[in-house]
């Protein structure tokens, strides 16, 4: 029996800081936005964290799907910025969306790909008939050290997917994962900001894993880039997904609807899943979407997704990605620093 996406929801905080404003503070050249293809990034409010934005995204998914939250049997929340090191995000989300207490949950972490790992976990339980409905979340209020290259992209956003077998908005036809031990980016326990390998994060990190997972999936399924109407690749900046798409033989038109990073930044665990949501916002039944996440450390999950009839009915019941991308309020660096807790009181 096919399984897949019953509903989806996203949340992106309304605050933005422009890359040029960050560049101004650190004396960086103003064309850094063009170099990264990231013009602005989302910033959480002072009272938002990976839990609150996960709840907003999950509530949107429940609302869009007209789903009784009591039916949810599993919640997996992937993030690299869980507010608690010990104490699950999933329990708070479960309570806040009104799930009854009969569900299993655990938090996941795999840099930027814990969200797609959560989708896989739910899909496994659903296809094994162990549960009816699972909630997979990718959520992050990511941190970049002041002045670090990451500061231009480290953003906040969440995506939530209800995974089940009935009333599908999109079927997940197949997935394929590729994982190695590659220390391209990390954050040690108790440290406030992640460290990274600079240009090492590129070829041995992002490109190797995204490419291997993408090719692996297409080989497994016998598909080609032309078989897909859309493609979404993890978006750590605006350059990498465009370049990897070209390398793999996907066109700019295929990735355009899902390429949101220039306007919201890298939402980490939310990134590829928000890109997928933006694509589902416009896709028509019968169309196919190719999705590849990437998490430093490192690994990629590739998915082949077919949009179902159900999408038309549910699409307008919750805010689309574009609604969040367009509703913005800009901050200067000082207020941004307050929002991000970079000011010590």
């Amino acid at each position: 029996m096919p399984a897949g996406i019953v509903s989806y929801g996203v949340y992106i905080p309304k605050y933005r800081i422009r890359a040029e404003e960050i560049a101004r503070v650190w004396g960086e050249s103003e064309d850094i936005a063009q170099k990264l293809n990231v013009f602005e990034k989302s910033v959480p409010d002072t009272d938002e964290d990976a839990v609150t934005i996960a709840v907003e995204a999950a509530r949107n998914a429940v609302k869009r799907g007209f789903v009784d939250p009591a039916r949810i049997d599993a919640i997996y929340a992937g993030s690299e910025s869980h507010p608690y090191a010990v104490k699950p995000t999933g329990t708070i989300v479960g309570e806040a969306i009104g799930a009854n207490h009969e569900f299993t949950t655990a938090d996941l972490e795999f840099a930027c790909k814990a969200g797609t790992a959560a989708v896989q976990a739910c899909l496994g339980l659903v296809t094994a008939n162990l549960i009816d409905l699972g909630l997979a979340i990718g959520t992050d209020t990511s941190q970049g050290a002041p002045g670090d290259a990451l500061e231009y992209t480290a953003a906040a956003g969440a995506a939530a997917y209800l995974i089940g077998r009935e009333n599908l908005a999109a079927e997940i036809e197949e997935f394929y994962s590729f994982t190695t031990d590659t220390p391209d980016f990390w954050r040690r326990e108790g440290m406030p900001y992640p460290e990274h390998g600079g240009r090492f994060t590129g070829e041995p990190g992002y490109f190797k894993h995204v490419t291997s997972a993408a090719q692996g999936l297409m080989k497994k399924m016998g598909t080609k880039p032309e078989d897909y109407d859309y493609a979404v690749f993890h978006q750590p900046n605006g350059k990498f997904p465009v370049r990897v798409a070209g390398q793999l033989g996907f066109s700019k038109d295929q990735i355009e609807p899902g390429l949101v990073v220039p306007w919201i930044g890298n939402t980490y665990s939310g990134s590829s899943l928000i890109g997928l949501a933006a694509t589902l916002d416009v896709a028509r039944p019968g169309e196919r979407i190719f999705l590849v996440s990437f998490g430093s450390g490192a690994g990629s999950d590739a998915f082949s997704i077919r949009v179902e009839e159900g999408i038309e009915e549910i699409r307008d019941r919750a805010p689309r990605v574009r609604d969040y991308v367009e509703n913005v309020q800009y901050l200067d660096y000082a207020v941004y620093a307050k929002h991000k807790g970079k000011l010590r009181l």
């Binding site: 009272d47 839990v51 609150t52 709840v55 507010p83």
Partner: peptide, 20 residues
Amino acid sequence: PVFRILGKEGDRGIIYYGTK
């Protein structure tokens, strides 16, 4: 309503979530 942090018990204590 929106779901937000209402307060925190300092840097070590629990986080109070709730409605704003």
